[in-house]
């Protein structure tokens, strides 16, 4: 632990071990024509333990790619991913990942989907089911335990996904536009649910979104990424809004608008650049 502390102290000048450190990470994909596409260029990012970080950027800027690298699903072309002061090799055991797409096992009921995360790590089935029932209650789905995913609405499926990830008590929560496909009202409700679950036992969160309102409402810190290719971090804003927050009410606070204006001014440029690039590629 002392070595770990020394390492992180050198890197970040704080005493607690950082949940995630991306040091000079580059991520590239080989293209079918033999070329190489660099999705993410030179990125340095530190997420402290218990910190909620939102990552915002124009579409196709490699936000998800960054999460995949943190999860260990993707190996960076260059640089290093560290998690709790250890270099990452293989999958990130500390991380729980809520994917953008539907990723529940369609052949398992809601409760089995939630219980499986405990079962695979050796918890008895009875105990896992008991825990799963508690977690389904926390996400407000007690009555839907025996439904299969196709019998649930999009929002309900995301709730099951949240319970599935959180039941394992990951120290890092990675979320890739988790509420993207949901309608505006459901997004607000899901945001509040996430905040209430998160404030119970603060984990480090990396939350990718393209919705700036959502990012400011949820996070301690908002990271802005530039348009790809070779996108980089171009902005880092601490959100001074008090907690506990309420997703619907927070938008009427003047401070929210100040922060929003400041970040939007930085982001606007990049969004337009992103659009121009897609158009150039298409024409």
């Amino acid at each position: 632990m002392t070595i770990a502390e020394k390492n992180t102290a050198e890197l970040n000048e704080t005493q607690d071990a950082n949940a995630v450190e991306l040091n000079g990470v580059h991520i590239a994909f080989s293209l079918p024509d033999g070329g190489i596409y660099e999705a993410v260029g030179e990125t340095n990012l530190v997420v402290s333990d218990r910190e909620f970080v939102a990552i915002v950027g124009p579409t196709g800027c490699g936000k998800s790619t960054l999460l995949n690298a943190t999860a260990g699903l993707l190996k960076p072309a260059q640089g290093q991913v560290r998690t709790f002061a250890k270099p990452l090799s293989g999958l990130n055991k500390h991380a729980g990942y809520l994917f953008q797409q539907d990723s529940l096992m369609p052949w398992k009921t809601a409760i089995d989907n939630v219980a499986i995360g405990l079962e695979v790590s050796g918890t008895s089935r009875r105990e896992a089911l008991e825990q799963a029932r508690i977690w389904l209650g926390k996400v407000g789905l007690s009555a839907f335990a025996d439904r299969y995913p196709h019998m649930l609405s999009g929002g309900q499926r995301k709730r099951v996904g949240l319970a599935q990830v959180l039941i394992r008590h990951p120290k890092i929560l990675l979320m890739d536009e988790p509420f993207g496909p949901l309608d505006a009202q459901t997004r607000l409700i899901m945001g509040d649910l996430l905040l209430s679950l998160w404030s119970a036992d603060r984990k480090a969160v990396m939350f990718v979104t393209h919705d700036l309102d959502e990012a400011i409402g949820l996070a301690d810190r908002v990271i802005i990424m530039s348009a790809g290719p070779s996108s980089r971090i171009i902005g880092n804003y601490t959100i001074p809004l008090k907690r506990p927050r309420n997703m619907a009410d927070i938008k009427s606070e003047p401070q929210f608008h100040e922060v929003h204006r400041e970040i939007w001014n930085a982001l606007k440029e990049e969004v337009l650049k992103g659009y121009r690039q897609t158009e150039e590629v298409q024409s």
Binding site: L91, A95, F99, Q101, D102, S103, V120, Q164
Partner: peptide
């Protein structure tokens, strides 16, 4: 589905 597979791996399945 690759998403289901990645999710299962992240949930710690061998």
């Amino acid at each position: 589905s690759p998403a289901v597979l990645s999710n299962a791996r992240m949930l710690g399945m061998n």
